[in-house]
Amino acid sequence: MRYAIHFTPSPNDPLTHAAAAWLGRDVYSGQTVEPPAVSSLGMQEISYHTALPRRYGFHGAIKAPFRLMDDVGEAALLRSLMHFAGTHQPFTLPPFEIAKLGNLYGLVLSWPSEALNFLAASVVQEFDRYRAPLSDADIERADPDRLSATQLTNLHRWGHPYVMDEFRFQMILTGGVVPADCVRVERAVRGVFEPVLDRQVEFSNLALFVEDEPGAPFRVHSLHPMGRVSARKIA
């Protein structure tokens, strides 16, 4: 079993509903969702282009998937995450916008968020003590020859190359798209997501994702509200 700590909007958020339809799976319930009707792509094409993000679920990665240390149980991770979330205040994210990320499409923030960058670094540092060391196969899958010196250091120190100063928040919506399909795929992505991107989204929970067995789809195990501990102290 692997765990990950991510951001995903609340179950009732319009962005969650749009993503569930686009990806064909609700990340909370795990249930299959009928794809949206778009003019530029058929249902089978949408399913093909969303196969990879469908397995990982709609999320913005904070701490990438990891296995627990042998002497650590899930209950300890949950207690720690609940306490950690409660000591950090919610904040509002900058508006999302659709972007082409290499040969993928996804959502990114319109401008950087210092609050998010600080929280992401804090999560990586705090929960690294629960992470089992990477295997040689894990390191090879990260394609270390293509990483910069900083990214390679991050991989060995924190288990993932794109953390700390290398962290870039993004919510992936497609797998790799060949150039010939880019116009049609981007038109479909914009048609589905632009209607729900006209507002800012609150970052008010940390989501624990789980992969029950190798290759299984990730799902939201639990949401951990932010700010609860601080609010109790003030009260």
Rank of each mutant, 00 (worst) to 15 (best):
A99N: 13
P133H: 03
R131C: 11
D138Y: 01
P94Q: 04
F96M: 05
A137I: 05
R129F: 10
G102L: 15
Y130D: 00
N117Y: 07
S110H: 12
L116Q: 06
L104Y: 15
D136W: 05
D136Y: 06
N117W: 06
P133L: 06
D138P: 00
N103V: 12
A115C: 10
L119Q: 05
L116F: 04
P94C: 02
F91Y: 05
A115M: 09
F127M: 04
F127W: 07
A115E: 15
V123M: 01
W111H: 15
R131D: 00
I98T: 12
A137F: 01
S135K: 00
S113P: 07
F127H: 08
L107N: 09
P90H: 12
Y130N: 04
S110Y: 13
P95L: 01
L109W: 08
F91V: 06
A99Y: 13
G102R: 14
A99E: 10
A132E: 03
Q125S: 11
S113N: 00
Q125Y: 04
F91A: 02
A137S: 02
G106M: 15
R129D: 04
V124R: 02
S122I: 05
D138Q: 07
A121W: 01
Y130K: 10
K100T: 10
E97K: 15
Q89G: 05
A99F: 10
K100M: 09
V108D: 02
S110G: 15
F96I: 01
R129W: 06
N117K: 03
T92A: 02
E114T: 08
L109P: 08
S113D: 07
V124A: 03
G102V: 12
P133G: 00
Y130W: 13
R131S: 10
A121H: 05
T92R: 03
I98C: 08
E114Y: 00
F118M: 14
S122P: 05
E114F: 06
D136Q: 10
E97C: 14
P90N: 11
L107I: 12
S122T: 09
F127C: 02
G106S: 10
L116C: 02
R131Y: 09
N103P: 14
